[in-house]
Design a protein around this nucleic acid. Structure first.
Lengths: 158, 158
DNA sequence: ATGTATGCAAACCATTTGCAATGAC
DNA sequence: GTCATTGCAAATGGTTTGCATACAT
């Protein structure tokens, strides 16, 4: 990654958001841009709690109502994507990144990205009949090395 | 599908469930088998409301607590698989079917299965480093032909 | 000045849990 | 007879909503 690239995508996102808000006659509130800022400076995957807490720590506390409101706007203008790996909470990630799988550990509930050029080619080149595909999500559930080790240890104990 | 095949997989599932319950010292209650029966006589994909209502109609009313309890048992013995296509509710499907993608229409929220031998091979043969993969889910979101047509029509009107 | 966006607290709703009564073994 | 399982009703927890206040325009 070239230096400055991160600032760059953040600026581009900010501009896109501004344009969207203007086009839809929405107000450009500091809360909305604070949320966008955190999303583009933090890790790629996040849930609402992570966002909420990071905003608190950064000194820009935002209510949950506003958080959800803003996330919906960011979904609408396609700056983020929403996932439902697990039951209770939704996960989000920045849009526009490289294609990747999600490795979802059923032990510790962690989510890791995994890139694979071969699978990417196979999936993106696939033409599906009678369907206009927009977005591909490949989730692999299983155990991360740490949880697999723990499980093995526990089985031995019995 | 040959005649009798449906009855057959239902019998096999029943046997597998019985074995599992025996092995885990669980009781073989009529409620549990009523749930399994509905799952193996209805459509492949279902949520808890569909199950609940079908059981009512069939004259085997089962409480929601028991329904969730039984679904967990069926998940444990791998007779069903759980999905989270949408926000609020979980979707289930019978396990053991052929590998398939899910085409999730963002317009009408329908879920369709799609089989593809080539993708199946590419995905199942993939060795992922530092991860013990157990289950693969490939969801493609986009528009079904009907919703794509509707959208096109609406855009013209503007 | 106007009316949208915010924060708070209450509402929602799928799922889970506590507990007394039931029934599989 | 014993104790797992059931059904009910209450609790849980992420997300949404109603409403008075604050503030972007």
């Amino acid at each position: 990654m070239k230096s400055g690239e991160r600032t760059d995508i953040r600026q581009v996102a900010k501009q896109k958001f501004t344009d969207y808000l203007t086009a839809h006659k929405c107000r450009k509130t500091p809360e909305r841009f604070a949320v966008l800022d955190v999303i583009y400076s933090d890790s790629r995957h996040f849930d609402t709690d992570m966002l909420f807490e990071t905003l608190q720590k950064d000194g820009f506390p935002v209510s949950r109502a506003t958080l959800y409101n803003t996330l919906q706007l960011l979904l609408d203008c396609r700056l983020i994507v929403k996932h439902h790996f697990e039951e209770h909470r939704a996960f989000y990630e920045r849009a526009g990144g490289a294609f990747h799988l999600h490795l979802v550990c059923t032990g510790c509930h962690s989510v890791t990205e995994y890139q694979d050029a071969e699978l990417q080619r196979a999936i993106l080149n696939k033409k599906i009949k009678k369907f206009k595909a927009a977005h591909y999500v490949l989730n692999v559930s299983g155990l991360c090395t740490e949880c697999a080790r723990q499980l093995k240890k526990n089985n031995k104990k019995k």
